[in-house]
């Protein structure tokens, strides 16, 4: 349809709104870049290869929080995956009608609970439980494995943060896996049932078809875990630790920002260092979510149509 004058006018009235949306991201990135320059100039690459937080002497290195972010996000994604694949399969295959409505409502409910409430619950209830029943036993019996090698002194560790964030992103990952699983055409299922496959075998076939979508969900879940702040800062114990053990307190980049940015203006470079760390997380999160989204839509075009 050719655009008439009226359409043009309609388009023009909408532009201010969409331009303001566009401007937000552009301005945000530009500001972060410009503020990061100072730190990049002062420390160069050592900002990302050393691990110091010493505002008194203006020495900074972000390796520990970066590694901490990656470790917690991996733990979170694994946790989320362990729970969301079964949950999605249960929803799609085994329950129907009322039970299905209730279960999917619960998943939906979970995904909207404010993260601050997850954070509070995790720090008051989950952390002590994990320490007594998971971290203590593992550090005693499996201490020959490097990641379990240290004894948890408090309940607030990298491990706790990873599991807590994992629980909070489970509904998000579940919804994505469920949706892709449901969008597989019925012909595949009929084919499976036609050759007398059991339900387990059917699920195995369908899940292997949905594998790219599951991978995309993992990437998107990882990106979300990376940006999670509230839960991280309340459960990770906030200390500048770099090592292989996940039972010690640590930092994620967001947790570092949340706990240090308030006083950062007092010290030279501190603010700039924090801006550059935010920039890194932001860019990585955007790239990951693009990879995830494009994988997802490519899979959809290939399988669903």
């Amino acid at each position: 349809m050719k655009a008439s004058r009226k359409d043009m006018l309609f388009f023009l009235t909408l532009t201010p709104f969409s331009i303001s949306l566009l401007a937000i991201l552009v301005i945000a990135i530009l500001i972060l870049i410009s503020r990061s320059f100072e730190a990049f100039n002062a420390f160069g690459l050592s900002l990302f290869t050393s691990s110091i937080w010493d505002p008194e002497h203006s020495r900074y290195g972000l390796l520990a929080p970066i590694v901490g972010s990656i470790t917690t996000s991996i733990l979170a994604t694994v946790t989320a995956l362990v729970f969301s694949v079964p949950l999605a399969i249960l929803l799609a295959e085994y329950v129907h009608d009322l039970v299905r409505d209730i279960l999917s409502s619960i998943v939906e409910l979970m995904s909207g609970v404010p993260t601050i409430i997850y954070a509070m619950w995790a720090s008051m209830y989950l952390a002590p439980i994990l320490k007594t029943y998971v971290m203590d036993p593992l550090s005693i019996y499996l201490s020959f494995i490097p990641i379990f090698s240290c004894k948890p002194i408090t309940a607030f560790t990298i491990f706790t943060a990873g599991i807590s964030i994992g629980i909070s992103i489970t509904p998000y990952v579940t919804a994505m896996i469920f949706e892709s699983y449901e969008s597989i055409p019925t012909t595949y299922r009929e084919a499976c049932l036609g050759i007398g496959a059991t339900r387990y075998e059917t699920v195995k076939v369908l899940l292997s078809l949905a594998k790219p979508a599951v991978i995309a969900s993992i990437i998107l879940g990882f990106a979300r875990a990376l940006g999670e702040t509230t839960i991280a800062v309340t459960t990770i114990g906030n200390s500048m630790y770099l090592g292989s053990c996940i039972f010690s307190p640590g930092y994620t980049v967001s947790a570092l920002i949340a706990s240090q940015f308030g006083n950062a203006y007092l010290y030279r470079y501190a603010e700039s260092v924090l801006y550059s760390s935010a920039l890194v997380v932001l860019v990585v999160a955007i790239i990951l979510s693009f990879i995830g989204l494009s994988l997802m839509s490519r899979w959809r075009r290939r399988v669903v149509v």
């Binding site: 949306l21 566009l22 979300r224 999670e228």
Partner: peptide, 26 residues
């Protein structure tokens, strides 16, 4: 413009909210 808006909205969804807080602070 529409394509850009769609892309930007998707990327905004994935940026850590703490970064938003820092930018608005400035």
């Amino acid at each position: 413009l529409s394509i850009a808006v769609d892309v930007v909205a998707k990327s905004l969804a994935s940026i850590p909210t703490i970064a938003v807080s820092m930018v608005v602070y400035l």
